[in-house]
């Protein structure tokens, strides 16, 4: 059998799913943190009308919590457990990167949709453009997954990994949050919808940029570590 990229990446994603669903602590803690954020905000604004601006900011804060909570899951835990060496022995760097990235994207997307659904229901927000909201969230989750995967790989062999991962991820997250909040605000009916879609294109462009650079940076890190 000749090794193919898709079979290697599928094997990595399957391994990530098996490990995550059998050892649920990481998945649950990320989801719990995001849902708690939504509930806290709902209680804080109980009886008041939440503005579109406030809602967009809060929604992205909840998504960031889920993303930063995943930092440990990608590579830090793998290197702390010593199992990263098994992947170094068997796999090509790009397979490892894409496998981890796709898994992070799946987890992040499911979390984002659960959080958004709960957020919209509990805050009685009127979504003016579901299409804009969904495309912004999917693009944002792709970007978030890439940033989390790469940041986790960069710090996985250093000391004080968790704190360092946040510092490494922050500069990459700022443009995403700014664009994401802008597009989501428009989806909630604040400002011009056309500008919202234009901002959404910005999210996808930024996502494409980080996703196209990420694998090459990762390959260099993986080889040198």
């Amino acid at each position: 059998m000749k090794s193919t990229w898709d079979s290697e990446i599928r094997a990595m994603v399957r391994k990530e799913l098996q490990c995550e669903f059998r050892n649920r602590s990481g998945l649950y803690s990320g989801l719990l943190l995001s849902l708690t954020t939504v509930f806290v905000m709902s209680f804080a604004f109980y009886g008041r009308t939440l503005t579109g601006e406030g809602a967009a900011g809060m929604l992205w804060a909840a998504l960031l919590f889920a993303g930063v909570g995943s930092l440990n899951r990608a590579f830090v835990a793998e290197d702390e457990n010593g199992t990263g060496d098994l992947l170094r022995l068997w796999a090509r760097p790009y397979s490892v990167y894409w496998g981890k990235m796709i898994f992070a994207f799946l987890v992040m997307t499911v979390t984002a949709f659960l959080v958004t659904l709960l957020f919209v229901v509990t805050s009685s927000l009127d979504v003016k453009s579901p299409l804009l909201l969904v495309t912004s969230l999917v693009g944002g989750c792709g970007c978030l997954a890439e940033i989390v995967t790469l940041s986790s790989a960069i710090v996985s062999r250093g000391n004080s990994r968790s704190a360092l991962a946040g510092v490494v991820a922050l500069p990459q997250l700022i443009p995403l949050v700014a664009l994401g909040a802008g597009a989501t605000r428009a989806a909630f009916g604040v400002g011009d919808l056309g500008n919202g879609f234009f901002t959404c294109v910005g999210i996808w462009a930024y996502t494409l940029l980080v996703v196209s650079l990420g694998p090459h940076v990762f390959a260099a890190i993986w080889k040198d570590s």
């Binding site: 990595m12 098996q18 490990c19 098994l86």
Partner: peptide, 18 residues
């Protein structure tokens, strides 16, 4: 991997090595 079975380890290694 503590949560993967013996056979799953070998399958993972085979798939990644091709």
């Amino acid at each position: 991997y503590p949560v993967l079975t013996v056979l799953e380890h070998l399958q993972l290694a085979a798939d990644l090595r091709g």
